[in-house]
């Protein structure tokens, strides 16, 4: 963990003393200066923590590199199902942070980050489309890869790889119908 990230963690713990951030390296066995740090945030506190990470002058995460989700169904030792993952980068201070927010069935819901990073808009639509995690406060939460009315969330682990017949469900055009 680099010094600036250490400062970020301290700042977080000072500002949110009631939250257990479960600070852990993202990948074990890296050299300390390469190590990236992951913190856990409960969905109820996510909006406040994100705003803090964006605004505090020790954090200054101006950029949301990625927003994605992991389905931990049947994952060994996993306690929650969906881990919505944020990859943050501070351009001024040059450090990175991963934020994970775990939610569960039914109705997994996470506050939207579009109010802070505009770029979260399509990323959140993708997570909604593929995993069915709802983002409250999102300005336009429609599906983005599949079409409106697609019956499933295909990247969930309990969705079969070959689908549930969506790919066979078309009108057949014969020579005489064209």
């Amino acid at each position: 963990m680099t010094k600036t990230v250490q400062r970020v963690i301290t700042a977080l713990q000072e500002a949110f003393p009631d939250v257990d951030f479960a600070v852990a390296p993202l990948l074990a066995g890296r050299r300390p200066e390469e190590e990236q740090v992951c913190v856990r945030v409960p969905p109820t506190r996510l909006a406040g923590v994100m705003r803090f990470l964006y605004e505090d002058r020790r954090c200054r995460f101006e950029q949301l590199c990625d927003l994605t989700c992991v389905d931990y169904l049947n994952f060994p030792e996993a306690t929650d199902r969906f881990g919505v993952t944020y990859a943050l980068l501070s351009l001024t201070l040059g450090h990175r942070l991963w934020v994970k927010c775990f939610v569960n069935d039914p109705d997994p819901e996470v506050p939207s980050a579009t109010g802070i990073w505009q770029g979260a808009n399509w990323l959140e639509r993708e997570v909604w489309d593929m995993f069915g995690v709802r983002f409250t406060g999102h300005p336009d939460l429609r599906r983005i890869l599949t079409w409106e009315g697609f019956p499933a969330h295909p990247l969930r682990k309990d969705y079969p790889l070959r689908g549930r017949g969506e790919r066979e469900n078309y009108e057949v055009i014969h020579r005489d119908s064209a």
Partner: peptide
């Protein structure tokens, strides 16, 4: 996979 048509000659 679920997202790819298995042969356009089906349709």
């Amino acid at each position: 996979t679920y997202a790819v048509i298995q042969g356009i000659d089906q349709f």
